[in-house]
């Protein structure tokens, strides 16, 4: 039952990531197209572009959400792949714990940076 719940959460996370990451990827990777279409376009990797996005509350919240969802989806998948190659419940539990700890650590680091930047420059 718990596994089904995680699986459903994983699918839901995938769908939400699709929406949030599509927006992020369009800004970052299709910037040549956006520059043609938008009059007030600021290069996304320039400092002004970074400040513009990083100090927008909605953008900041969406980045934190995307980070959390991405880490959950990614480490859930990694855990499932590793579990296929590893025999034994104890070893699988260690792998699951490792994935969880890594995910939480990266979430804390990423959230500190995102919220910190918002507070310092906002």
């Amino acid at each position: 039952m718990r596994e089904t719940k995680y699986w459903a959460l994983n699918l839901l996370a995938g769908l939400l990531i699709l929406v949030l990451l599509a927006q992020h990827m369009a800004v970052m990777q299709l910037d040549g197209w956006l520059e043609k279409w938008l009059a007030d376009w600021i290069p996304p990797l320039s400092w002004p572009g970074l400040v513009e996005r990083g100090t927008n509350l909605i953008q900041m919240v969406s980045y934190v959400l995307l980070l959390g969802l991405g880490l959950f989806h990614g480490f859930y998948g990694l855990n499932k792949i590793l579990a296929e190659f590893i025999q034994g419940d104890q070893k699988r539990r260690i792998i699951r714990l490792g994935c969880t700890v890594m995910g939480i650590l990266l979430f804390v680091v990423g959230t500190t940076v995102t919220v910190g930047f918002y507070l310092v420059n906002g």
């Binding site: 400092w47 970074l50 990083g54 980070l67 991405g70 880490l71 990614g74 480490f75 998948g77 990694l78 792949i81 990266l106 680091v109 990423g110 940076v113 910190g116 930047f117 310092v120």
Partner: peptide, 28 residues
């Protein structure tokens, strides 16, 4: 699976590299 693992690896690096922005405009 391979693309998922590659994206996870990139995300891990991305979290640390984008952290440089906290050090200010010059560092970025």
């Amino acid at each position: 699976r391979i693309s998922g693992l590659a994206l996870l690896m990139f995300l891990m690096m991305h979290v640390f590299f984008t952290g440089v922005r906290l050090l200010g405009e010059e560092a970025w």
